[in-house]
Write a protein that binds this DNA or RNA. Structure first.
Length: 831
RNA sequence: GGGCAUGUGGUGGAAUGGUAGACACGCUAGUCUUAGGAACUAGUGCGCAAGCGUGGGAGUUCGAGUCUCUUCAUGCCCACCA
């Protein structure tokens, strides 16, 4: 008999058996209730890191727990496999990114299997394969048909030295990640997805997501950024052309409208040239050219002092008749609101800074009656009462917002306006390793979508990855030229590929029906499996991926492809894996390679440890000593099973404590019931795996203690021991997947332990036979008395008052009150 | 600047408003061993003690780590959004 536990040998054996028998295959036609457990799928970067191990172990334990509890569980995995690292590797070695990707997937697949994850591998999804991106392209076309995809001119990150567009991720501190030169902005025609059309619903439906943390919901709400304000239109009084013009502004502070002393338009404002006088033209042009060149990071940096130039023209404030100058300044953003800002330096810190710098006038219109401010040294941005505001004087500013906007509405120069910060999603990437955008450009017919029966538009293979300064896809001699689907004449293909976030915005739908080659997924099957019951992933996806996926679900719903509103019912954002207090990273040299842990301690140890020390949502500090401790614990469990194997039967009878003669046996049975209850509740509530594992340890310690009191085992002893050990193995089976399977067979169990039903507990047995009665005097613990668990309130009080320690403290004092908490404590209040 | 978290022993962390420090790591003794970085046993918040203890200060309560207010510190995310 084995006296010590050899994970390498045991784990490899079971890994193979489970794989051959497809133990974790999911049946689409089961009549059990469904449960969809999902981890965010990985980018095939080469090797798993500990963050993956944590993420997938958490989801795996949930999936196994739900399966044991009678659910038909969908637990799939796939690969978010388009993206820059593959292309970079390809460019470095002038090799095919597909080869690099495939090799990584093969390696990581082995690692995932080693980790003992209960995936249904028949549903594996790989976003860079034509059988997947065909449907990504098809979905793009549906969105195009719906008007949710459009093309427009937009600024991109441009590296002048490499002559190429950079993704945001490739811009590091405003510089090119490859050549370190300053990144500029450049205007190109780009594809956009109209996510803003769903801004209101994306915000409103956050309320439906009861199973999401408030932190993630708040981040999304802030990102969507709904604000209520007004649009005011200011007539231009001296447009150089003499034409009648007006400048509309958006403001959330209509109450300050009487305090306007100037007006700012963004450098990219569409009418800016028509609003500039001849004398100011040169200065304005120079300022705009400079702003265009500046990188996003430079421009948006807050510590930068504000700059701007006057246009030379003026507007009239329709509320006051005052004339004020127009300026351009890059603190006005062309993409937000109307691209123009009404400046009230007295009540806005940005306007204040700008006005001080350029000596623009200040006019106070809001005051705190108790502490009036002249706003000479700083803007007064808090609430107050209107002054210098004509008919609105004396009104509270919160009320004035409405009244003033209403006046503008009535007189025809303004309206109420709701504004979002959310922008449309730029999805064009001037890159090779992505899904080609299925569009062609015909000289005669213009933009033409590729007909659906011609999908997929395959990535060309005849490309040169060594090129610098352009996307490798443009070097293909065969890709560019094609035929117009409309007129049959010559057309050229779109050379841009899609942002990989598109691919990852619908993969969770594909899992439900992963091998469908007729449609992206069958509507009924998707309706059956979705929404995902539990989604697990890193907080870093709190905004982009989760928002895009929510948008996709709503858009596909409106295309008639599915019938639900939100894709992820419950979301668990796991914390980071740290080492020595900082995030594991190659540059810091504090990474831990999962392979080494598997090799030295086994996957069960890795699984146990990664769950043990912190609750899932919190950051987890890796410690080598902790791994060692988990390994020792598993060996301790193994010794407990193997040294008792011949005393244990896997089919123990149901144990009722009344029929048990021996006190130690009764205590152990109660301990087991308490463990079942506690562990089940800890998993069910918030997935508190760290306390689950401490309860494993308590249970194992209790069995060892029990064993220490026994020499020869009688039938009752054996029965109780069997009950304890079999329960322990079942409770541990979602975490220590290999050890429990091996142990299950060691004691003669049939089939797989992973097909066994979860343990049940008896409420009457899930408590100990005696309790510690805590006696407090004035809220401080003074005595503890061991009493029967069924003690009455009266007896509790009597026992407490009889305590010698209590008597000593209450002698000669008045007992004001006695509080009795049933079966817990007595508090005696004395004076 | 805004938002969101989090503050408990030497360390990771437990505690439906009811025994603070479960369970571990570490450490200290000891047992068994040729040896042990294995296993087992005992101990381990601080303080000689009365007592004191959950970042600080107030409050609610018979009773507060937990609830309220306030303050400080740390971390993360967003950041010229008018």
């Amino acid at each position: 008999m084995k006296q010590s536990y050899y994970p390498q040998e045991i784990e490899k054996k079971w890994m193979k058996i489970w794989e051959e028998k497809k133990v974790f295959k999911t049946d689409n036609n089961s009549d059990k209730p469904k449960y969809y457990a999902l981890s965010m799928f990985p980018y095939p970067s080469g090797k798993l890191h500990m963050g993956h191990v944590r993420n997938y172990t958490i989801t795996d334990v949930i999936a196994r727990f739900k399966k044991a509890n009678g659910f038909n569980v969908l637990h799939p995995i796939g690969w978010d496999s388009f993206g820059l690292p593959a292309e970079n590797a390809a460019m470095k070695h002038n090799a095919d990114p597909e080869k690099w990707t495939d090799e990584n997937i093969a390696y990581m697949t082995q690692q995932l299997k080693m980790l003992g994850l209960s995936y249904d591998w028949d549903r594996e999804v790989t976003t860079c394969k034509p059988d997947y991106y065909k449907w990504t392209q098809w979905i793009f076309l549906q969105l195009y048909k719906k008007g949710l995809v459009y093309k427009k001119e937009a600024a991109v990150n441009w590296c002048p030295d490499c002559g190429t567009v950079l993704a945001n991720e490739q811009v590091i501190d405003g510089k090119c990640w490859r050549c370190d030169s300053e990144v500029e902005k450049k205007y190109l025609s780009q594809w956009f997805v109209k996510i803003t059309q769903y801004a209101d619903e994306l915000l409103k439906d956050l309320d439906l997501l009861k199973g999401w943390g408030d932190n993630v919901k708040t981040m999304q709400a802030n990102w969507i950024g709904k604000s209520h304000g007004a649009i005011f239109r200011f007539p231009v009084v001296d447009a150089p052309s003499g034409e009648k013009m007006e400048v509309p502004v958006y403001t959330t502070r209509p109450d300050t409208v009487h305090g306007i002393t100037y007006l700012v338009v963004a450098p990219e404002y569409k009418d800016i040239e028509k609003l500039t006088t001849t004398e100011n033209k040169q200065a304005v042009e120079e300022y705009r050219a400079n702003a265009r060149k500046m990188s996003e990071i430079e421009r948006l940096s807050t510590d930068r002092t504000k700059t701007g130039v006057p246009l030379g023209t003026h507007c009239k404030n329709p509320f006051t008749g005052e004339i004020f100058p127009l300026w351009t300044a890059d603190y006005a953003l062309v993409e937000y609101g109307t691209g123009a800002v009404m400046a009230v330096p007295t009540h806005d810190t940005r306007d204040f800074d700008f006005a001080k710098k350029y000596n623009l006038p200040l006019k106070v219109v809001i005051q705190n009656p108790e502490h009036p401010s002249t706003c000479e040294t700083e803007a007064y941005v808090d609430e107050g009462v209107l002054v210098n505001s004509g008919e609105f004087n004396g009104m509270k500013n919160t009320e004035a917002k409405k009244a003033i906007t209403q006046k503008a509405v009535d007189e025809g120069f303004g309206e109420f306006k709701t504004q979002f910060r959310l922008r449309d999603w730029l999805i064009s990437r001037q890159r090779y390793w992505g899904a080609p955008i299925p569009v062609v450009y015909c000289d005669k017919c213009g933009i033409q979508p590729v007909p659906e029966d011609q999908l997929p538009v395959l990535l060309p293979k005849d490309v040169d990855f060594s090129v610098v300064g352009k996307s490798p896809i443009t070097t293909s001699p065969t890709f560019k030229d094609t035929v117009c689907p409309c007129c049959g004449g010559h057309a050229t293909r779109e050379m841009d590929t899609m942002d990989t976030f598109i691919c990852s915005s619908w993969y969770y739908l594909r899992y439900a029906d992963a091998n469908n080659d007729k449609e992206c997924f069958n509507k009924d099957i998707v309706n059956k499996w979705l929404p995902v019951d539990q989604y697990v992933g890193g907080i870093e996806h709190a905004i982009l991926h989760l928002l895009y996926s929510r948008f996709f679900t709503k858009a596909l719903r409106d295309c008639g492809l599915l019938d639900f509103d939100e894709p992820f019912a419950n979301l668990l954002t796991q914390g980071m894996v740290l080492k020595d207090g900082s995030k594991m990273s190659k540059s810091k040299g504090n990474t831990v390679d999962p392979d080494e842990i598997f090799e030295n301690y086994g996957a069960d140890t890795a699984r146990l440890f990664i769950l043990s020390d912190s609750p899932p949502a919190r950051d987890f500090d890796w410690s080598d000593a902790g791994v060692e401790g988990c390994y020792k614990f598993l060996n301790r469990v193994w010794r407990l099973v193997s040294s008792n194997a011949e005393n244990i039967s896997p089919c123990h009878s149901e144990l009722v404590s009344g029929s048990i003669q021996n006190k130690d046996n009764d205590d152990l049975v109660r301990t087991v019931h308490m463990a079942i209850k506690g562990i089940t509740n800890d998993i069910t509530n918030e997935f508190q795996f760290n306390t689950v594992i401490s309860k494993y340890r308590e249970l194992v310690n209790a069995i060892y203690d029990w064993q220490g009191k026994k020499s020869d085992l009688n039938d009752e002893d054996k029965n109780v021991l069997s009950f304890a050990i079999v329960s322990m193995l079942k409770l541990m089976s979602p975490v220590a997947v290999y050890l429990t399977e091996e142990a299950w067979h060691e004691i003669g169990g049939e089939g797989s332990i992973h097909d066994q039903a979860w343990c049940k507990w008896d409420e009457n047995l899930a408590k100990s036979s005696s309790i510690t009665l805590v006696v407090q005097v004035n809220g401080k613990v003074k005595d503890k008395i061991e009493v029967d668990a069924e003690i009455s309130k009266e007896d509790m009080e009597k026992q407490a008052l009889n305590s010698e320690k209590v008597k000593a403290l209450t002698d000669g004092k008045t007992i004001v009150k006695v509080i009795v908490v049933p079966k817990k404590l007595v508090n005696i209040v004395v004076k």
